[in-house]
């Protein structure tokens, strides 16, 4: 099973919950806490994320960054994020 994870920009999220619907792994939930604008925000609720990107694709606020374990772990792991 490929492992992945997401980072949600908490203060950008407006709590629309579309990512929860889009997630095939049922690994996203809304926070109990409110962000600075008063919204609950999306967060991972377990470690079943596969980094499939679906949540990010439907996120209207471009609040989700997605990471995935490279297919071949023998390779040196160089995050593509270095470009950012």
């Amino acid at each position: 099973m490929i492992r992945g994870t997401i980072i949600v920009a908490q203060d950008t999220c407006k709590g629309c919950e579309l990512c929860i619907v889009a997630c095939p792994q049922d690994c996203i939930e809304m926070s109990e806490r409110l962000n600075v604008r008063g919204y609950r925000y999306a967060q991972l609720k377990n470690d079943t994320c596969t980094g499939c990107v679906n949540c990010a694709l439907v996120c209207p606020d471009v609040a989700i960054t997605v990471y995935r374990q490279p297919k071949s772990t023998s390779k040196k792991i160089q995050p593509a994020a270095a470009v950012a």
């Binding site: 980072i7 407006k14 990010a56 990471y67 593509a80």
Partner: peptide, 24 residues
């Protein structure tokens, strides 16, 4: 993130402005 590849991020052709649209 150590041991992870970045697979999706906001495009650089978008500004950092907070989107004014309603949730969803």
């Amino acid at each position: 993130i150590e041991g992870m590849e970045l697979v999706y991020e906001k495009p650089q052709t978008m500004t950092d402005a907070y989107l004014h649209y309603c949730p969803g």
